[in-house]
Simulated assay, not measured.
Amino acid sequence: MTSGEPARLNAAWLSEVLGATVTDVRWRPVGTGQMSGCFRGELTGDGVPARLVAKLPAADQATREMLKGIYRTEVRFYLDLASTVAVRTPACQYGMLTEDATDFVLLLEDLHPGAQGDQLAGCTAAEALDCVVNLAGLHGPRWCDPALLDLDWLHRTGPDDGDGVTDVLGPATEIFIDRFADRLAAEDKATLRDVAVHAGPWITARPERFALVHGDYRLDNIIFAAGGGAGVAAVDWQTLTVGLPARDLAYFLATGLTVADRRAHERDLVAAYHRALARHGVTGYSLEQCWDDYAFAFLQGPLITVLGCAYGAPTERGDEMFLAMAARSCAAIRDHGSLSKVP
């Protein structure tokens, strides 16, 4: 299996891996497919799902070599870790990863007719509540679990990451500021530059609390139930690491809510997340500690936003989204004095 096209996922192959008879399948691409291919398949047969989503590597071999680390992370999450946590995510029907991780296949539950969140538009406080409770289902079940540290394919944020983040984020921040010089507020430019200086020591701080961290838990990576019902699902697990759990929480609330909505609802939302952690067995972690970690962790927003913008392919919607995420995150950092908490 070397082709990045879904033609290899024909009815005979699907019948073999699903253990059921597939008589026909029709695939169509979904998403942009810059790092991997994503296809929705409509299946007919006996005892098979009506729809599946398939993820495959990029068609270009050089791109595969460059991205094999994130391919490995996502496949291994679905095969090895998803069943050990309570976060809602598409069920994996089949997963394959070659030894060198340059080729893979994931067959995932199609969450249709659920709808992808809209990072630019933001979400309501009620929608955010579902998202943070779901997030606790990722963090809580493996909270400070030492077995996570034994997984050689899963990166843990550690002392060696600080210099690397500093070296990369400084130039990327200047690229970001130059690109949007006329569209960024002066105070946001200043905050972004301060984040670039502090991000190295920030990312290595507070190692005593760790869990699985999605890394890019935001609205574009969340599927909402049809009709506004409860129950969201997280997708895109390529950025999974082990680190301070509050990084996901702060990143989501800072970038997914308007500044006014975050200020109005964040106390209640953090408290709801904390209660959900307790339901998953987390003890010895007070609401005060949770709030302090949350206030500390807002640097995740500019970190992901700036790097994603500086090194990703530009689009009109992407530019608007990155600007909104940067402005919202910078406001949260100033509101909470996050930079003053960095050692």
Rank of each mutant, 00 (worst) to 15 (best):
G4Q: 06
P6K: 03
A7H: 12
V17E: 11
D24R: 14
G33M: 08
Q34Y: 14
E42K: 08
G45D: 06
V48C: 09
A59N: 11
Q61P: 14
R64I: 10
G69V: 12
I70S: 15
I70G: 04
R72T: 11
Y78D: 04
L79G: 13
A82P: 03
T84R: 15
T84A: 15
A86I: 04
T89G: 10
C92W: 05
Y94Q: 06
M96N: 13
D100Y: 10
A101M: 05
V105D: 06
D110K: 03
D110W: 04
L111A: 10
A115G: 08
C123E: 11
C123V: 14
A126V: 09
A128G: 06
N134Y: 05
L138Y: 07
G140D: 08
P146K: 07
A147H: 11
D152I: 00
R156E: 11
R156L: 04
D161E: 12
V165H: 08
V165R: 01
P171I: 09
R193K: 12
A196D: 04
G200V: 01
G200Y: 01
W202H: 00
R209S: 05
G215W: 02
D216Q: 07
R218S: 07
D220H: 08
D220G: 15
N221F: 11
I222N: 03
A226H: 14
G229M: 08
W237P: 00
V242G: 03
L244E: 02
L244R: 02
P245L: 06
A246I: 00
F252P: 01
L253Y: 04
T255I: 08
T258I: 05
V259H: 05
A260V: 12
R267V: 13
V270G: 02
A271N: 05
Y273A: 02
A278L: 12
Q300E: 13
V306M: 05
G308Q: 06
A310V: 09
G312V: 05
A313N: 13
E320T: 09
A327Y: 06
C330S: 11
C330D: 02
A332F: 01
R334T: 14
